[in-house]
Design a protein around this nucleic acid. Structure first.
Lengths: 192, 192
DNA sequence: TTATACGTTTGATCTATGTCAAGTTTTTTT
DNA sequence: AAAAAAACTTGACATAGATCAAACGTATAA
């Protein structure tokens, strides 16, 4: 399972054997079954986590018990709750597996040591963070400017790798619309 | 005008005189009048920018000519378009002044050198980036979960420093509602 | 100081999307 | 393979918020 991550690193940066070894030493492995939690609301999130296999979502639950999907991740994506990580406060989010998944965890303190001692690694992580920020800015813009149908079309355009792995209800939640509305949109738009 | 930034730095980190000097050497100063652009759609954004005085917004314009406010900034905030900065591509956003403002600019290449050569500074910047990311995640969650009224109440709660400096129409745009709707919400909710 | 433009309020409608409910299909469990 | 549980679809109806239009205030500029 580590080889997925090793491959990911190789594609992005060049490491000495020693550095690669150092990183590997910090990795913790975790398999989670479909619907199993990686993080539950109220717990503190202390990791940097890489998805080696599977599909995972993070979401909040509002006062009416309705789930709101904040994000999805598949192979080669990072997930977690940076707010809880940074603040040390209990998380307001849940993270669970949409499919049986494999995750590589790094405890955050060790991870920061790695970032500091292997600058090229730290730099890579920083880039990822910046991209996540940009992506969420774009999502905000899309949410503000677009109709339900436009948001859906943009979603399948951008996340084509996800579409067939996610139940309709989760996509609807991610887009901020009801499952019924998404079902009707799909009928008119075609399944693509 | 630099003293605002110096003060900001002092509150966050400790620098040697030499380091403080190095940073100052890279600063460019810019005054912009109300409604003047700092960035126009189509231009490439190449700076890291700190607001020393005033109030600034960034927004996009959709195909119908409607503006969508992505974010606001006041004294001690950073602004810019990280997507254009990182990609080198023309920006899809506009940034202009809501009030007469003063901005400190650092060309991004110099800024990165500073981050690398003064680790405590780089670390501070990184923290800010992380917080921005967290803030935008939270904004997404709010946009998904809340009604127009709840979004407005959360806004005045969180951005009380802004509320009286921004025209209603810009706040409405930021929240993704029409000015008419916000006007009606204010009527029922009271001006607070 | 007056004129002009810009922003806000208010009212009357309209519409995209939500809600509720019942059926159908698919997936999971036994 | 059958039963039970999720997930999805479809229809009828409800509503939050949008749109259009006109009047009213309040800054900006001549």
């Amino acid at each position: 399972m580590y080889d997925v991550f090793q491959q990911y690193l190789n594609n992005k940066i060049t490491l000495t054997d020693e550095e690669a070894f150092q990183i590997r030493q910090c990795a913790l492995f975790k398999k989670i079954r479909k619907r199993q939690y990686l993080l539950q609301e109220g717990d503190v999130w202390r990791y940097d986590a890489f998805i080696a296999r599977g599909c995972i979502r993070s979401y909040s639950i509002d006062e009416n018990g309705v789930e709101h999907v904040i994000g999805f991740g598949i192979e080669n994506w990072w997930i977690g709750d940076r707010e809880s990580l940074l603040s040390g406060q209990p998380s307001r989010f849940n993270i669970d597996a949409v499919e049986d998944s494999e995750v590589i965890l790094f405890t955050h303190t060790k991870f920061e040591e790695l970032c500091a001692s292997i600058p090229v690694f730290g730099h890579m992580i920083n880039q990822i963070l910046q991209r996540s920020f940009i992506a969420s800015q774009n999502r905000i813009q899309a949410a503000l400017s677009n109709t339900a149908e436009e948001k859906y079309l943009a979603f399948i355009e951008k996340y084509s790798a996800f579409v067939n792995r996610l139940p309709l209800s989760m996509i609807a939640s991610y887009l901020g619309i009801t499952p019924e509305t998404l079902s009707r949109i799909r009928k008119t738009v075609g399944r693509k």
